[in-house]
Amino acid sequence: MLTTFDKDLLNLIQTKLPIAPRPFAQVAEWLKVDEATVLARLNWLKDHGYIRRFGAFFDSSCLGYVSTLAAVKVSPTCIEAVAGAINAFPGVTHNYEREGEYDLWFTLLTPDQACQDLALTAIRNLPGVDSLISLPATEKYKVSVEFNL
């Protein structure tokens, strides 16, 4: 169970890690505890699976990467094999099975368009894949995976 302190710490640490020599000392000051307490609690929260990843999050398009959201219709018996083959691409960061017409929805990040085209063609040709749609973004209005605890 998360304590009230854990929730305060997680709410703060989702966006506000300072870029400074002693970032956790600053966080500790905000929460009116000492640095060692913050570090011990963060390590515990990470070890117990509450924190997926800690650190720097970059904007792929600002770094020159090309991205898309794609979906495939897959024969029911092939889902696991197709999911595994899609996951094998290093630029696939998310791959979810969803209810509805298309079975697997995945995001693909590649250094350029040619790499994206190659990957999508390979995925479209996987055994069991009936069809594939690619839905590149034209505008990004919000990316903010923060939760109020």
Partner: peptide, 28 residues
């Protein structure tokens, strides 16, 4: 390193410094 990271953040290349939570584990 601190100078470069600050520069990336100003330019928008660095979207955030912090934690991404496992949403299922925190109740979502």
């Amino acid at each position: 390193l601190l100078e470069r990271l600050t520069k990336y953040r100003k330019s928008g290349q660095l979207r955030k410094m912090g934690a991404v939570l496992r949403h299922r584990e925190v109740g979502y």
